[in-house]
Design a binder for these strands. Structure first.
Lengths: 80, 80
DNA sequence: GTACATTTGTTCGTATGTATA
DNA sequence: GTATACATACGAACAAATGTA
């Protein structure tokens, strides 16, 4: 809500959201094993759509930083 | 049960379902204090998904027409 | 007191349509 | 024409709470 992401031509919202979450992981605000906020929660927090959240999480998954499970959600990989 | 809701570009299903239920309340077919049909029942009756039912009920909740309780279901507000 | 079924709450996966840059 | 972004709508599965047998 307070962290509204601005639509910006050069950097897509989903890339920005991925960067925000990646920074939180690297700063330890989200520690290994910790669950990430759910997609609906991220949607509300950053005022973006479901698709944008999914794309952001997909980036972090591809980077090996998080893992996602059905009906469970995403968490920081234990070895991240 | 004959009240199949058609997908129509201008009016989303969940808005139509909310309108149907709102009309029933205003006509007194659902009187104050009366329980609404459960979500599974509404799904079967109108042939829509759970998410659509939930969105429709959310609209009526925000309008103050109904209230919802876990394992109890929704009912028309006593003062509606 | 316990087991079971029902109902809502919540989550992720997926697909489609629309609008815009 | 492609990429971005949103809204709608479906399905599936789990948790939590309540009522009932």
């Amino acid at each position: 809500v307070r962290e509204h992401i601005e639509a910006w031509s050069d950097v897509p919202k989903y890339v920005q959201l991925a960067a925000i979450l990646r920074a939180q992981i690297e700063r330890g605000e989200l520690s290994p094993g910790m669950p990430l906020p759910s997609a609906p929660h991220l949607m509300a927090t950053y005022e973006v759509s479901r698709g944008t959240v999914r794309k952001a999480l997909e980036i972090l998954r591809n980077e090996g930083l998080i893992e996602t499970f059905r009906q469970i959600g995403s968490r920081v990989k234990p070895d991240a």
